[in-house]
Amino acid sequence: MSFDNTPLAGKAGIDESVPSRYAVQVGDIDVMVISDGVLTPPAESMATNADPAIRGAWLDERLLAHDAFDWPLNAVVVRIGDQTILIDSGIGEEYPDFPRAGQLGHRLKAAGVDLAAVTDVVLTHMHFDHVGGLLVDGVKDQLRPDLRIHVSAAEAEFWKAPDFSRTGMPPELAELARRASLQFLDEYRSQLHTFDQESEVAPGIVVTRTGGHTPGHSVVRMASGGERLMFGGDAIFPVSFEHPEWHNGFEHDPEEATRVRLRLMRELAETGSWLVSTHIPFPSVGRVAAHGDLFRWVPAWWDY
């Protein structure tokens, strides 16, 4: 079964005034980006080590406010052969401070994606806005008992006793992240398929640990028919192309996270691979181009 960008009869999310899913083809691999909505953390959280004046100028150039910054929240559904793979699960529904997010459940239904058909889940990492969708009441009951959840062993180990000392997360968000990760481990431990550095989830779909953002943060690379796509998780943000040195407040090892995103952006620029990332504006499909010593984000032209 392949995806398309047309609404399903009777399931079209007619109460929404904006699109929330976008499908692309990577050779024989069907990829659908689905928006879980928008988070709105403080604007300084995207560049905790930046000079406030330079950060403010970056925001001004884009006509953005200085107090808060909209972070899109994207997940991906992949189909190949008899596998349906969900990459990350959004934030869930238990966070009143983020009322514009937590949309993934009904948007999956609108896209015709049945949770019972999901054979695999890949988690780039275990922050609450990536595991929260699996913690929504009733979701686990809809999932297959033989569901495979792929996450790096380092990530699962880290969240048993997480260290937030190098992040810029306020205490309430750190506690939220700690609580969500422990709940996830408690509920899904028996379904975890952990890996050390790399694992092939399906033909042409490989998840690889990068570290940086969290100790076990991973990216997913897809390759088929000469086409490539990388799901970058939280390795690359909207500010990363011009300011890869800016630290994100949610990074547990900011210096390593900088090295990771530079390495990944060089790879993307050299290979011409498509990039989809969690917090790049929906549909978050584009390519990375070299721009002197830095980079440019080149969004895809929408295929109507």
Rank of each mutant, 00 (worst) to 15 (best):
V276N: 10
G10V: 14
T194S: 08
A110V: 07
E16W: 12
V33N: 05
V260D: 01
E255W: 08
E175I: 12
A177T: 11
F98L: 04
V260P: 02
W302F: 13
H217V: 01
D234V: 04
W297M: 10
R179L: 09
V151Y: 00
G292I: 02
D51T: 14
G10P: 04
A202T: 08
W301H: 14
V207C: 07
L176S: 07
G211R: 03
R221K: 15
R21P: 01
V118M: 09
L294H: 12
L86F: 01
G132H: 03
E155P: 04
E93M: 11
T124H: 07
I236K: 08
I14C: 09
T119G: 03
S152M: 05
P299Y: 05
K11M: 15
E270A: 14
H106K: 14
G112M: 05
L173E: 08
H279E: 10
H125V: 01
D163A: 04
H106C: 11
G204S: 12
V201P: 01
I80Y: 07
G132F: 07
E267H: 09
A180M: 06
W274H: 05
R62S: 02
A290W: 11
P72F: 12
L134D: 04
P52A: 09
H213S: 08
R263P: 02
G272E: 04
E267V: 01
W302P: 07
P19K: 05
G105V: 04
D4I: 04
E227F: 05
R296H: 07
L39H: 11
R100P: 02
E227H: 15
L134N: 01
N49R: 06
G212T: 04
I280E: 03
I87D: 00
V33A: 14
L59V: 00
E200R: 11
F195M: 06
E61F: 09
L135P: 03
H213A: 09
E256G: 03
D82L: 11
A12T: 12
D82M: 12
M1H: 13
T84A: 13
T208D: 04
D51I: 13
G168C: 09
H150R: 00
T48K: 08
T271N: 10
D51M: 06
A161C: 07
H291Y: 12
H193R: 08
A12G: 13
A68D: 09
L134Y: 03
A161P: 10
R144Q: 13
G168S: 06
V298L: 15
A47C: 11
A43C: 06
D97Y: 06
R261T: 03
F241P: 07
I91P: 01
P99E: 10
M46W: 05
D70E: 15
G138R: 02
E44M: 11
D293I: 03
A289V: 02
A156N: 03
A156S: 08
A12L: 10
V121L: 10
